[in-house]
Structure formats: structure tokens, C-alpha cells
Design a protein around this nucleic acid. Sequence first.
DNA 1: TGTTCGATACGAAGGGTTTCGTAATAACAA
DNA 2: TTGTTATTACGAAACCCTTCGTATCGAACA
Lengths: 128, 128
Amino acid sequence: MTEKHIKPTEAELEILQVLWEKGPSTVKTVHESLDGIRSVGYTTILKLMQIMIQKGLLTRKRDGRNHIYAAVPERKAVQRQLLDRFLNGVFGGSAQKMVMQVLGQYRASPRELKEIRQYIKKLEKDKS
Amino acid sequence: MTEKHIKPTEAELEILQVLWEKGPSTVKTVHESLDGIRSVGYTTILKLMQIMIQKGLLTRKRDGRNHIYAAVPERKAVQRQLLDRFLNGVFGGSAQKMVMQVLGQYRASPRELKEIRQYIKKLEKDKS
DNA sequence: TGTTCGATACGAAGGGTTTCGTAATAACAA
DNA sequence: TTGTTATTACGAAACCCTTCGTATCGAACA
């Protein structure tokens, strides 16, 4: 399951998000989730999910007259890959630059900042 | 110059990177930079850069028989926009989750970690 | 069995990106 | 001026993603 090149499109990523969030679901469920955010046809989602099966991004099993779809790659794995590409493509591979930009751009709550700081301290300890 | 929707494609982003890095350049320079990384034709880059002019991503001026191209949007502005989309699309908008994943995934040097920690402290102070 | 109705399968259009071949152009040199 | 060469302009193909209309299927029920 450790696919070399996971590269979901934007629409595919939306679908994966729903499945990661809700667990294995029908097309109907996924469609209802997404249609709430942006208007999109039922068969559009269906088609996308069928394509995603061919690409190996989803699996499915029959359940009466429905299909139940499940995400194949794990959320973390996809995030890791996309992050890697993004970091290299947009920030020249500098994790530091990216982190600082994120922290400056979105004000994390004091609690979050503290947690991040502690996480860094932990990393610093683990290293030595 | 504060474009509402800056959304360079991948190829366009590569070109912008070169121009941000090297400053205003000819097609030849950009092509040589990119061709070193992945094989791509000269006229492909030329065409892309011409399209980018139409989109307002680049400007150019004549210089003898050449054109000198320059990036229009600032690096930081593009990074900010792309980061915003990425964070929302991939990490559900949680800066904290993303930062922690980045820090865990790429080991920053002790010096970088320290700098980030200090930056956070600065943020914490500014807030109060 | 035959009808109904929700779900699936499929084709094709529309839009965008990337690619490159070829034609036109302009500077420079002979 | 004319030829040579580097550069630009342009068109079109190939590819991919997204969208949806329509056809098909199949379970449930009368």
C-alpha cells in the first residue's frame, strides 16, 4: 500500500477527505458531503470514484444495491507525499522557511504555540 | 499587483522560481536552468512564458534580439496563497498539524529548530 | 412476471496545461 | 544588400481533469 506516486487531483482529494473522515461510505454519502460545500452532480462524484478505483485510490464492495467505497492510501501517507512536493516546489525544500511562514500567516492560539514549542524541544532532546 | 487569484500551474511555478532566484532573465537562461533538472524543449519554455505574459504573471522588455522576462507577483505573495490552499485542502486548515508534520518529517538542524523556537517565543510575546 | 426506482456504467464534451514543430522575424556579419 | 543564425510567434496535437446526460442494471415489490 506504499504507492510510489500518490498524486490525487483536487477533486480526488476532496473525496479522500470524506472517506478518511467518515470511513467507508456510499457514493450518496460522499456526494451529500461535498454537495453541501460546492454544487456538484451525483454522477460526477460517481464517475470520479470509479476512476479512482482504476487508479487504485479506492476499493469497494457490494452491499445490496449499493457500493461501499473505502480509501486505499492512508491519510498520513498522502499528506506526507503532498507535503514533500509542496515544500520542494514552493519553498525550495526549506522546512524552516515554510514553518515560519505558516506561523506568521495564521495566528495559532497560545496553546497551540506552546504545544509546538514543546514538540520542538522534544525533537531537540531526541537528537542529542 | 495584489492579484486576487494567483494560481500558477506547476510548470509556471518552476519558471517563477527561476526568475525569483536569478532575477530578470532570458528564455535561454530559464530553459537552461530547467532543462538541467528535467528534459524540456526550448520552445516549450518560450511558449509557457508567452502565456504567462498574457496571464499577467510575467512582464518583459526587449534587449537587442532578446526579451528579458521578469516575474510580476512577489514570491512571498504566491507562497502565501498556495500555502493557504494547501493547508486547507490537505490539512483541514490546521496550521498546527501541518507544522508538526513538517518538523517530524524533515529533521531541521539544531540551529534551525532553535530559530523556530525563538520565533515562536517572539510571536507569543507580540500577542500579549 | 413485470414494473418501478435508485444506483451504476459509460461516453463524450468542455476546458485547461504542456509539448513541440514550423514559420516568421530581427540582428549581425560579410 | 544579402545570407546566416539566434530568437520569437504561432498553431495544433496530446494529454488530463471535471462534468453531466443517458443508458443500463438489479433489487424489491405488486
